[in-house]
Design a binder for these strands. Structure first.
Lengths: 237, 237
DNA sequence: AGATTAGTATTGTGATCACAAAAATATTTC
DNA sequence: GAAATATTTTTGTGATCACAATACTAATCT
């Protein structure tokens, strides 16, 4: 049946108020984010439909949406797959994150009030606790939540969807980053960012965000190490 | 039949090697780019299908893809429309363009060879000629072509899809910008950028790109003027 | 008359079917 | 036995249908 490896999904709860397409989209998005789908593996509509126990139609729509967000790649054959990572592409994605997210942070700064700052501190504390407890899985999601909460303070935000596209493309590496970094590092950069916010210091905030992103991916400090992790994520499973 | 204004499409030629969905996507994308669709106007699948003389299915897929690229907005009612522009959002989009595109230019710089530079000069000359002839329509497309050619010199480019999303959201304003700027300005900035490329000066290149974008939208120099153009594009037709 | 309600038409969603293109498999040829 | 060819299966695309939810219209009521 499956010439390639089977795909294991962590099926989310299906809320009644949500369309099937949206649920399929969320499920596939999580699978891509968590690296549950082998890059280069051909995804067929009917196979996913059977796996998720839905009709082909919602799968079709979800795949097209994910492809539009650069989470999936449509080959010339009209085949859909998770794009393969390369060292150069990884580097470009990180650089793009730094450029876009430091900009988003700067544009959000004037809108951050006490309530927002408090929410950030709360998330940061939660990250600390979760990481101390040795739970590496949810840290990645919480980290994203921290950044999202920061940028979305700007009510006229337009870059968040673009940033999420980059997160989606970095996919499993975001998780590796959370697993490999030390608690002190992460908290340091987050508190540094929050200090800059309190002082309304845009430059310092941008530096903190850039450092946070860069250090997050420091586990791949040398090209050789990076290549090892890429290979691992590419042929895992 | 149409409570709102009818939509006039400039139907592109339909190549046989292209799927219907792709053709519909291209047609709708151009319509959004050119401001042929009134913002806030509800777009229904069946209406568009009849207008374009295709079945509802390709329209459905094209709409979802455009929504994923932030060219269209899905309301809570599951209704699809061109999002309305505001002065603040316009400003954010311009700022995002400057941040992202100057970054893309910097990352492309090391890869620009003589052939690429020559291609840029050719496009620039074509822009000049077209504008001198008083033809404002194609200038916008050529301008995008100039930027696209520059950024895509980087073979590991990851930001171009994000940049195109911003262009799509700025939509008709890109055209207004091309119409309202003087020939000298545009050419100046482009030659400035190409001079920076020849000297491998990343900083100068970034400044030229930022200035090019900023001056392109200088026709909306005051908030009042900007609001006038927004209103014009919102209630045009 | 203006607001509310009942009825009607239209819409997005999802399912199923048909078909040509592509992939995989089986067969033949050298 | 390996390469080329023929056959079978699978796949994406597009069309059509059913249905519940929504938007629209007409009738009713105060």
């Amino acid at each position: 049946m499956d010439k390639n490896s089977p795909i294991e999904f962590t099926l989310a709860e299906r809320d009644a108020s949500v369309t099937i397409t949206q649920w399929v989209y969320a499920t596939l998005r999580n699978a891509v984010m968590d690296g549950q789908i082998l890059p280069g593996r051909a995804l067929t509509i009917r196979e996913l439909a059977k796996e998720l126990d839905v009709s082909p139609m919602p799968v079709r729509e979800a795949l097209r949406q994910l492809a539009a967000e650069n989470a999936l790649e449509i080959q010339g054959n009209r085949r859909v797959m998770v794009p393969k990572m390369t060292a150069m592409k990884f580097n470009e994605l990180c650089q793009a994150r730094m450029a876009l997210e430091s900009h988003a942070a700067e544009r959000a700064l004037p809108y951050i009030d006490d309530a927002r700052l408090q929410a950030l501190q709360q998330i940061d504390a939660l990250i600390d606790d979760t990481q101390m407890a040795g739970d590496h899985r949810p840290v990645s999601a919480l980290n994203q939540e921290f950044h999202r909460t920061l940028y979305s303070a700007n009510p006229h935000q337009v870059t968040l969807p673009l940033i999420e596209s980059l997160w989606l493309q970095l996919g499993p590496f975001m998780r590796l980053a959370s697993a490999h970094l030390e608690v002190s590092n992460q908290v340091d950069r987050h508190t540094e960012a929050m200090a800059a916010i309190e002082q309304r210091d845009a430059i310092a905030l941008q530096l903190a965000i850039k450092a946070d992103i860069r250090e997050g991916f420091n586990f791949a400090s040398t090209p050789e190490l990076l290549q090892r992790f890429i290979d691992q994520s590419n042929r895992h499973n």
